[in-house]
Design a protein around this nucleic acid. Structure first.
Lengths: 110, 110
DNA sequence: ATGCTATTTGGCAAAATAGCCATGCACTAT
DNA sequence: ATAGTGCATGGCTATTTTGCCAAATAGCAT
């Protein structure tokens, strides 16, 4: 692969990788509703706080979310709303996959 | 996290993970132009055929591409065009990140 | 200052991913 | 039948990612 092209795809992949985890998808979806602090997200996810904190730092590092420290808490919010449109496409893939699956079941006589 | 929700995010994450690799992004973009066989993609990527073949199987497994065997070759094509819209959003994130980066440079006097 | 709450960071082990080589398989050609 | 081409799979190692615990940091309250 040409170097310029490679660099470009690597940059994209870094962002997409940041989205490629169930907990981080939940975070994105919650932050799309409204800003949230780490404690709230931790409760929703049900993992260790440190784990959630690391997920947040991955998302922040990718430029997907931003943080705002107020008092004792840090509030995170979604920085790039267009991400949510993407989720629509992902759902479409899932539904196409489900249809195909059903078709296979039918053809094999169930 | 509630089980139902978790399953849902896991399904989404699997699809996004399939996209989260430079070579696979190149494949997606190429297949968006037209169908391609493994040999062509391998040449563009510049990795071992077996590696490319595995990338293709990941994309296929996620339901993103489909294959069509004709003669001695297997032609892959993009199954869900909406994926490309998503790339637009990723580019937007990159450009927002770049702007922020420039602003930081300015503020630090460069 | 001391303690309390909210969050991040370092360290580590387990799990997942990536990429190469060698091999196997299917189809084509001779 | 034999050889050649195109692709997939198994096996293996190196790298990356994940998630917990323990410890550090920062702000608030007393």
């Amino acid at each position: 692969m040409k170097h310029l092209l490679k660099t470009r795809y690597e940059a994209r992949a870094k962002i997409i990788k940041a989205l490629a985890h169930p907990s981080r998808l939940l975070i994105i979806e919650e932050l799309n509703q409204r800003e949230r602090c780490v404690g709230e997200l931790t409760e929703m996810i049900g993992a260790d706080v440190s784990t959630v904190s690391k997920h947040l730092s991955i998302l922040k590092n990718a430029g997907l979310i931003s943080d705002d420290k107020r008092g004792n808490s840090i509030f995170y919010s979604l920085r790039v709303p267009c991400i949510m449109q993407f989720m629509g496409c992902v759902e479409e893939v899932l539904s196409v996959n489900a249809k195909k699956h059903n078709a296979i079941l039918k053809c094999s006589g169930r």
